[in-house]
Write a protein that binds this DNA or RNA. Structure first.
Lengths: 226, 226
DNA sequence: GGATTGCGTGAGGAATCCGTGAGGACGCCC
DNA sequence: GGGCGTCCTCACGGATTCCTCACGCAATCC
């Protein structure tokens, strides 16, 4: 069940939103002020936050900034204003989408769905990926082997493994992996990449010599096979 | 929020585009040269790239090729030229759409929306094409046979199959395929091409001796029949 | 009907790419 | 300063892929 935090000072609209979302199967938390929104956001992890910009105590922009300081929860902003400056500011601070009043409930639901889909649905969907018998938690950054022992990965290994695991069974060019690792598209030495692939295989594959999940496509790149 | 990378050497036009797109809720990254475009593209993942073909340092086509080497970001090309040859070259290199100057801002926005919608907002995009009973995913670079088993293709086979599949039921000259494979228009040995067509038929067609989808037009070239 | 042209298939050497080991450079903690 | 962990480069054996050559066959042209 998707948990949504609704922040709206206008009481009638808040109740209407809560009822609609609850009826649609959402787990709704209500907040009437900015401070209550922050305490609610801190108390429980949500999958998406629906935030009205016009709040009595705090500016909606401040709420966005405060939430973004410790979480990457998707935020859908709700505003009556049409000023693009505010819209841009909200989006720049890390908001994910923008709905202008008046809005249809269908449009709002669509945007909520889009936001949760994009956001990966917090930790609830458990970003645990199974690589054979070892489990990888992308959110917690932990790897546990089949016998329960912890496996240690270096930062570079993590970055490499994460990009591979986030695109299951999709081929990723060696060049793409290198640019992701280094930030620059130049210096494309493939030998550098091979070593870290080898490291990952040593730590994750049952038979590093005969990989079954971290597969290399000769001349093309690498692929994670679930 | 849609992230768009705008590549345009004419400064006034670049600013005008950036302002318009920002006002529309896009997250805009600006680049005035081809090299800056490549570094910007490598630094951050974008949902769509708006690219002017007339750049001072690099050819726009080179930018397309460089980006396509490691990412499948949708590319909308912007050009003052009406030459269809350049248009075809850009689209063959992996551009998604083409807007000719002068253009209306509304048309440009519509095409950007279309490109991002098609691209699935930088998320997984599976471009699945059915070749008889086997399915080909051009984005993931995977081929699965009718019985679900995976089929392995070499880089050259992929490049050949991709150009054929991207122009369904359209005849492509052997010469065009060869130049696409090798990069140079010289050395057009047709026997070299036949081998890879044969390989593809072996791996994709139910009866390689009697091809039904990878059809040869004697004296002209090849054609993919869906 | 004969000759020519173009296509399909097989085999094999050359070139490229990948896996692996060893080892130095750098930053960090004790 | 010493030890440790990580990053990054280089070199070499092995596997995969590329590309050429040669030959049989079908269709077309004269």
């Amino acid at each position: 069940m998707t948990r949504v935090l609704v922040v709206e000072d206008e009481r009638a609209l808040l109740r209407a939103l809560a009822m609609n979302l609850t009826a649609r199967g959402y787990d709704v938390t209500e907040a009437e002020t900015g401070t209550r929104a922050l305490t609610a956001a801190a108390a429980q992890e949500h999958d998406v936050i629906l935030l009205d910009l016009g709040l009595p105590d705090l500016s909606g922009l401040e709420v966005i900034k405060a939430v973004r300081a410790y979480a990457s929860t998707p935020i859908v902003v709700l505003s009556a204003r049409t000023a693009t400056a505010e819209k841009v500011a909200a989006l720049d601070l890390g908001a994910d989408d923008f709905v202008t009043k008046p809005f249809s409930i269908d449009e709002l639901l669509a945007r909520l769905r889009a936001a949760t889909r994009r956001g990966g649905s917090a930790a609830e969907t458990s970003e645990v990926v199974l690589v054979g018998t070892t489990s990888v938690d992308l959110a917690a950054k932990t790897v546990t082997a089949a016998d329960g022992s912890a496996v240690h990965l270096t930062p570079t290994e993590w970055q490499l493994l994460e990009t591979l695991l986030r695109h299951p069974s999709k081929l990723i060019t060696g060049r793409a992996l290198l640019t992701q690792l280094r930030g620059t598209p130049d210096h494309t030495d493939p030998s550098y990449l091979r070593i870290y692939i080898a490291q990952l295989r040593k730590k994750l594959e049952p038979e590093p010599g005969r990989p079954r999940h971290l597969i290399t496509e000769p001349g093309m790149g690498y692929r994670f096979q679930p």
